[in-house]
Design a protein around this nucleic acid. Structure first.
Length: 423
RNA sequence: GUGGGUGUAGCUCAGUUGGUUAGAGCGUCGGACUGUGGCUCCGAAGGUCGCGGGUUCGAGUCCCGUUACCCACCCCA
């Protein structure tokens, strides 16, 4: 058979898997300090959760979803992102009933059918947080701060991160602006690329994102949403910035930042780095989605959150020279001199483990010499040598691999002695 | 969906104008006074040269196709 993992997926072997767990540990510890609780939602949902939530016209929904019909005839889709599921779950379980607030975080794989490239996989992992029921700008500033602090906690220097901030307005000011941009594009159609002209009909705001220099030049003449926000949105945006300023979180206002999911309102943000990600640059991003719950026929419920990508975060860390610490695979190696002491060695290793010590032993009938090599490779601080000589006096030899010192200790007392020596 | 690049041992790669048993480094395993590591030395195992056609007396080396991976476009984490 073909042993290759499917296109766009990757096995996470120990070195990578360890980094994965490191990210999750850092996230859990940090998020807990801000009052976020874990939540696990299904990896697949009724397709409607995403089509209604993310938006029919988005790239994600129109061409990137893993959708299939299950044996019951239901249309099922592997989740392409986490927010829609969390909001759906909050609605199902009434987490925000009577004005309650929910602060949740999740971590797990997402699925998008795309051509893989650096920093982009068909199955990729995200960690995200969501705050539901919070309308105040302090919530926006908190979510952004958590994202920023997370990357800092991983050791990514603030100097290489760029936090982009923008407001997308809401239903009272965005539609008019959107129409004006569409009109602007049609007006300058002959100076813009085909793609941008097409955008006038689908998602006009995306034209600001075009990499074509000519388009950028033309779009620079368009009015900015920042200047067209309604009073409420402008005040909210200003307050978010004030709160970020107070915390010293450095942001760059970017009126062209338009995130690709339809559900965003008001605040949107993204953290980018320049090294390690290939042609990608965003390692995390998010925003406010005050109308999303209503898209599911739920009550009006403000919400916001962020998602960050494991793969990209790791690429950024690698580029920054950050190593994920690897603990020794064994603290003590229990070596046997010959087969006559196998039973004692096996039992002793178990007593070490029961005493809380990471202990390893040979399962391949290797020579004593190669057991020492093995112990060295595993990073074991101690080797306990068990042989006929030792056992004759009810003892074992305890060798400190760093100092090469050896001493005899009683067989029964060995686990405690090793545990004590390890501190 | 489109374009470009690459596919030789577990990993990183060499392989001359096509010519006899395909190499190196690292890693793995074993050994270097009979019960002991990291350095050094010696040795061993390990390869359908992505796959299928074609050209040729002969192809890892040329041609065609195919597939996988990588990178980029689109878009996104």
């Amino acid at each position: 058979m073909n042993a290759q993992a499917p296109k766009g997926t990757a096995d996470m072997l120990p070195d990578v898997a360890r980094a994965w767990e490191h990210l999750q540990r850092v996230a859990q510890e940090l998020f807990a300090r801000y009052g976020y609780e874990p939540v696990y939602t299904p990896l697949f949902e009724h397709t409607e959760v995403f089509t209604r939530g993310i938006g029919e016209a988005t790239d994600i929904v129109s061409k990137e979803m893993y959708t299939f019909e299950d044996k019951g005839g239901r249309s099922i889709t592997l989740r392409p992102e986490g927010t829609a599921s969390v909001v759906r779950a909050a609605l199902e379980h009434n987490l925000t009933a009577n004005g309650a607030q929910a602060k949740l975080y999740y971590a797990g794989p997402m699925f998008r059918y795309e051509r893989p490239q650096k920093g982009r996989m068909r199955q990729f992992w995200q960690i995200g947080i969501e705050v539901l029921g919070a309308a105040e700008p302090t919530a926006d500033a908190e979510v952004i701060t958590v994202l920023w602090r997370f990357f800092e906690a991983l050791g990514i220097p603030a100097a290489i991160m760029r936090l982009l901030l923008n407001s997308m307005g809401d239903e009272s000011c965005r539609p008019a602006y959107r129409d004006s941009i569409a009109a602007f594009i049609r007006q300058h159609a002959r100076d813009l690329c085909e793609e941008c002209v097409r955008r006038a009909e689908t998602n006009p705001l995306r034209a600001f994102d075009c990499k074509n220099p000519g388009c950028r030049e033309v779009m620079a003449g368009a009015s900015l949403l920042r200047d067209e926000l309604c009073d409420e949105c402008a005040a909210h945006y200003a307050a978010v910035k004030t709160h970020l300023d107070a915390l010293g979180i450095p942001y760059v206002e970017d009126s062209t930042l338009v995130r690709g999911l339809d559900y965003y309102t008001r605040t949107v943000f993204e953290i980018q780095v320049d090294a390690g990600l290939g042609s990608q640059n965003a390692i995390g991003g998010g925003g406010r989605y005050d109308r999303l719950m209503e898209a599911y026929d739920g009550p009006p419920t403000p919400g916001l959150g962020f998602a960050l990508g494991f793969e990209r975060t790791l690429l950024a860390m690698q580029a920054a020279g950050i190593e994920v610490p690897a603990p020794p695979r064994a603290e003590v190696f229990v070596a046997r001199v010959d087969d006559s002491v196998t039973a004692e060695v096996f039992a002793l290793a178990q007593r070490m483990r029961d005493a809380g010590v990471a202990a390893e032993l040979d399962h391949q009938a290797r020579s004593l010499k190669s057991q020492f090599k093995q112990a060295d490779r595993l990073g074991a601080r101690f080797v306990v040598v068990v042989g006929p000589d030792e056992l004759a006096s009810g003892e074992v030899t305890l060798r400190d691999m760093s100092t090469r010192e050896e001493k005899r200790v009683a067989l029964d007392a060995a686990p405690a002695a090793v545990a004590a020596a390890l501190g």
